[in-house]
């Protein structure tokens, strides 16, 4: 098949995106070709700019722009609360909910000896020092409810206990607005385990 070289190059580049196969890549390429030049430039710039400007905050591990962490630097945030998550995108999910106004700590993974991920890889020591150095009252562990996420939560809880901070695990259970009958058994089990008294 005779592709113009520039098109071939573009399709190959786009096909590198996760979840994008050759067909979708070709569709995206033709979309770009049919768009006004300025738009294409804007898209290309946005990619490069994001790559150049975004980094992980050295303190909390969340995404920040040019060393300016919008979570750590925000004076209106509750500095007595710290929420631990596995991935930077988890921060965005929690932010979107708008309920939580404390600080974050991103681990960039969960303990998994099989994958060579231990406490060093997750920089746990630095995290513990962070908790020790600040006046944190409660640490909320919001790692995923998987084998590895739960083990990480257990490990962190063990390290945090001697520091005399309140350690909580985010609740698991029914999706709000859903019907009980549609919940799967495991979720329902967890919901029962995590039930609480109505005050």
């Amino acid at each position: 098949m005779a592709y113009p070289p520039a098109l071939k190059k573009l399709v190959e580049a786009l096909a590198r995106f996760p979840g994008v196969g050759p067909k979708t890549a070709q569709r995206l390429a033709f979309f770009l070709l049919s768009s006004p030049r300025e738009e294409v430039v804007t898209i290309a710039r946005a990619m490069v700019e994001a790559k150049d400007r975004l980094e992980f905050c050295p303190a909390c591990g969340a995404l920040c722009e040019e060393g300016d962490c919008s979570y750590c630097a925000d004076a209106r945030r509750d500095r007595s609360m710290l929420c631990i998550v596995q991935e930077p995108r988890d921060v965005l999910v929690i932010e979107r909910s708008g309920r939580y106004r404390g600080l974050y700590h991103v681990l960039h993974g969960a303990l998994s000896p099989l994958d060579g991920i231990g406490p060093e890889e997750l920089k746990i020591e630095r995290f513990i020092n962070r908790v020790r150095g600040q006046s944190i009252v409660e640490v909320i562990i919001a790692t995923n409810p998987t084998v590895e996420g739960d083990a990480t939560a257990g490990y962190l809880a063990g390290l945090l206990k001697p520091l005399r901070v309140k350690v909580t695990r985010i609740a698991f259970g029914l999706p709000v607005g859903g019907d009980l009958e549609y919940a799967d058994d495991l979720t329902l089990n967890r919901a029962f385990e995590g039930r609480r008294e109505i005050l």
């Binding site: 303990l111 998994s112 000896p113 099989l114 406490p119 083990a151 990480t152 257990g154 490990y155 063990g158």
Partner: peptide, 21 residues
């Protein structure tokens, strides 16, 4: 996961620490 730690060539105290969770 647990067996991997048990087999790993690391120090005793470290192993015990890692095994906990």
């Amino acid at each position: 996961q647990r067996n991997y730690i048990l087999k790993d060539k690391i120090g005793f105290h470290r192993k015990i620490e890692l095994l906990k969770p």
